[in-house]
Amino acid sequence: MTEPAFFILTALLDAPRHGYGIVSDVAELSRGRVQLKIGSLYGVLDRLVLDGLVELDREEAWQGRLRRYYRLTERGRHALATEAERLAANARIASARLGERRSPIAGTTSS
């Protein structure tokens, strides 16, 4: 799963969101690191819809336009949980190895 796809699914966890809502939430969740452009957002979103991880929730009128809201499907929630677990397991391995190599003298490493 790519990083933008991971953050888009995470953004949809708590509530359905529209296109720009997803862009804003992804920027906030990633602390500004992942700044999705509109072309990039829809390039990921169309595949998530095609794979059944995200679906259309509703359409709402806003300033004379229709806003489409998207929600996470059960399959999307499961895919996100699996990916989060995989990343957490990787992080645990790295942290444990870093801990082992840390010298008793703070700030220095063994070997």
Partner: peptide, 14 residues
């Protein structure tokens, strides 16, 4: 046909 209006709405909002 599928995505244009939604992309335009998101872009103008951005």
């Amino acid at each position: 046909r599928e995505w244009e209006d939604d992309m335009v709405a998101a872009f103008l909002e951005s």
